[in-house]
Amino acid sequence: MGVINLGEPRVGTISRVAPKPIKFVLNWGRRYSLWVFNFGLACCAIEFIATSMSRHDFIRLGVIPFAPGPRQADLMVVSGTVTDKMAPAVKRLYEQMPEPKYVISFGACSNCGGPYWDSYCVTKGVDQLVPVDVYVPGCPPRPEALLHGILRLQEKIAGESLGERYGPASPVPVAQPQAESRPPSPAVLRRPLQRPPQPTSADRPEDPPEASPENPPENPPREPPQPPESSSGQRPDAAPRPGPLPPPNSVRGPADPSEPNLFLP
């Protein structure tokens, strides 16, 4: 098949070297006009559609579900089971998206295989194929969970710098949105506090815990999602935590040319 190689859609130099106020404006624009391309694969796709419908309506948040195809999209939502047969198509469509591009992995199947973790034909997580920005848990996640994932992505976009995201590793630390600095969502604050059935010990916190991850001191520090070499200056204690899963593919932007691309025919 004669494939015309158009090359990777890249970020221009101007948006890389732009001064900070300009970057702020650019990020602000990107944040609230996410043209989304739904990679609807399974059950989660139905919840994605439900999110785009009148009850939840993510256009309120600036997510526009009318991208005619991946070439016009900023955000890909992988919703559903990625099978090994489908994996090349996922990779290929991701590569067609222009930069800056973002991926939300929606649901257990695309996070890491989910219910089909021991299946012979299911890819164990879409992050093996493409870099993922936000993981939304659930099987399927409820529409509000996707909205929450979109909000988290918008926070990430607001704090990022494309130069560091796509360029060579720079000594300037990437401004990573931190879980601690994130304001708790009003949804959590307004929900009445429920007492646990057995409040046994007195040393429990009295205030309602927010949905955001606390960072208890005894917890091992979390690995930042970005390549550690570019952000290690910010968190001196960042060390990969021994976890049940290998760390997700943290390759950003175009794949290393020396690496054989197994997914293109």
């Binding site: 399974a42 059950c43 099978t83 047969k85 219910p115 089909y116 021991d118 299946s119 012979y120 034909c121």
Partner: peptide
């Protein structure tokens, strides 16, 4: 493209666990 091998997975799950897969 969406083959997930559900039938094979049924064989290694007990009857309560099968329900979880069967509705998917």
């Amino acid at each position: 493209y969406m083959h997930r091998g559900a039938e094979k997975l049924f064989e290694v799950r007990d009857y309560r666990q099968i329900i979880v897969l069967a509705n998917r």
